[in-house]
Design a protein around this nucleic acid. Structure first.
Lengths: 207, 207
DNA sequence: TAGATTGTTAATCGATTAACAATC
DNA sequence: TAGATTGTTAATCGATTAACAATC
């Protein structure tokens, strides 16, 4: 257990570890060493041990980590031992797909409200989820005490949307708009930019 | 112009710069300084200049960068001055959404073939795109000389799919499956793991 | 010219990894 | 016990940023 600052990279890896531990649990495997993590996930075993050590001494020397209890520890660290309601803004193709995807996963972070500004979409349903007008966004977020939002609006609307989300009390945003959001202290943003990822692949192609 | 190795991070930023330059072009703006990039993109101006300097002396001291010519330079570096055919494997919710999204963008990297292993999906269309059986994947890739693939299959099928893609000649993969792919030298992979991004946001929430 | 901005070096910062004593 | 593996330190590696001479 250390007092060093914990990096975003460490937190994201915790989520990756958690998913791996879930598959181990399902396979009935009870122990895993940091080298098992390295082999399966491609993350250096010292890195794995270091990531865990920020939060506690979870392992047993000579033995490794107990799958069940490590799973619970990480789940608790990430707050994923409870349901976390999430809202999504922008019910376009991508946003709609993320809703379906989220339903399939049965994730503890569940999309419970969807908003769009288009009268053509408002009132439609994504399975059981009703698409609501953005005008109701702030009141619904406050009512449901939603702290996490997913932004899938066009780039031009992203900052405005984010500002309103913050004003409603949102503390964390997963941003799919290709725009860097300017956020106040204490609000977390994760940008997902798979278009940039795709384009960066083109660099390596032979001409 | 330097001989230092160019990082993946630099390449991804080039794609971000390119998108910014496109908006400048559309606004009719002809010059931009590295500080303009910093202000809009939140990337340190020294970083911006360094990224460019790997590839040439594109700027003019005291003036900045010419938007049009810098756009063309980066486009050429990334091979995005030509159409690049892309295939997608796994026509589930996410894969289907990526197809629609790609069509809307009119991207130079265009999804031209879609494959799925489910008889329920094969034969269906995503707009003009016919979903083909995975059995035809290798031959179609070879015929169309496709070098880039997007994997949106379930985790359990991802490595097998990737192996077959490589055998067909694919050189670069955008991987949405939550599995680290083991790839031979010379094949590029970009992993997109927005579930891990979402879960990492939960860490910062107050309990 | 004076002001602005590049390209580049050197310094800093942070993240990854090797190594190993402790110990199960 | 002997072998395995942790937790942690120190070394390494790489990426970011400050600073500034060059020069438009």
């Amino acid at each position: 257990m250390s007092e060093k600052k914990i990096s975003q990279a460490t937190i994201k890896r915790l989520s990756v570890y958690l998913r791996f531990l879930e598959t181990l649990k399902r396979s009935g495997i009870q122990k895993a060493s940091s080298v098992d993590f390295e082999k399966k996930l491609g993350i250096n075993s010292a890195q794995v041990r270091k990531d865990f050590s920020f939060f506690g001494d979870f392992g047993q020397k000579g033995v490794g980590y107990d799958v069940d209890s490590l799973f619970k520890e990480i789940q608790t660290i990430l707050n994923l031992d409870q349901k976390i309601p999430v809202c999504l803004i922008g019910a376009g193709k991508l946003g709609t797909a993320l809703c379906y995807f989220n339903m399939m996963q049965k994730d503890p972070m569940e999309i419970v409200s969807v908003f769009d500004n288009s009268p053509l979409k408002v009132g439609n349903k994504i399975e059981h989820l009703l698409i609501q007008p953005v005008e109701e966004m702030i009141s619904v977020i406050q009512e449901k005490k939603i702290q996490v939002a997913i932004i899938t609006v066009p780039g031009g609307y992203a900052q405005y949307t984010a500002d309103r989300l913050i004003s409603a009390g949102v503390k964390a945003i997963l941003n799919f708009a290709p725009i860097p959001l300017k956020m106040p202290e204490g609000v977390q943003v994760q940008d997902v930019d798979f278009t940039a990822d795709l384009h960066s692949l083109a660099y390596f192609l032979s001409k």
